[in-house]
Amino acid sequence: MNATSEYSAKRKVTLVQAKADGAARRDATEAPGDRIVQACWSCQGPVAVGEPFCPSCKAVQPPGQADHFQRLGLPRGFEIDTAALEKSYFQMQRLLHPDRFATRTPKEKTLSQQQATSLNDAYETLKDPLARAAYLANLMGRDVLKEDGNGPVDPMILMEAMEMREALAEAETAEDVATVTKRAQGEIADCESELSDAFAADDLDQAAALITRLKYLRKLADDTRARRAELRGRG
């Protein structure tokens, strides 16, 4: 058994187990109509959306419309098994490595590169709590961090952001900065845990507010690092 078929065999087992877990879990974590099947471009056999390889002829497939969760074989939700995410990512990355396609047709080379790019996107998005939350909200129909969106923000979030940024701007010593950093990290942890509750309760309004708050907190945390470097440079 080569690595590819061994991999898809494992994956099949995961899918079967996920189905066996029952309807309750399935409702909350899986997209409706998730077992969409397409025809393999090479052998016309059935391929489930998100599968990188045809289970029949092993040909690499186009990335297609799979969402990031499907692509990495994870249930859709804010809480994810990070060990499973890492494992799935590195396993698939290995299977899509350009060396494996060195002797293949140009079409397969192109497809494997597209697969690798989509895989990286999926991994980068899902491993970061803020990116994952924003992506999940997007899948649920809410574009919280719209590029050109100055939309109304909860005044409490803005007041907190202004207050903490001012505290950072006034920080004159490494200790002052450390105090702000510690507070930011604490708020980030709280915010992520509240996000988890909001998604678990399917409360999209609450999740959207928390995503915005988390975005501001993360920006603050970035700035505390910059400020620390600045103070170090001066001293």
Binding site: L145, E147, G149, P155, L158, A161, M162, K215, Y216, K219
Partner: peptide, 13 residues
């Protein structure tokens, strides 16, 4: 007036 742009994490007073 206190406003913000969530996409950039900017805040303006």
């Amino acid at each position: 007036g206190l406003v913000g742009a969530p996409a950039c994490g900017d805040v303006m007073k």
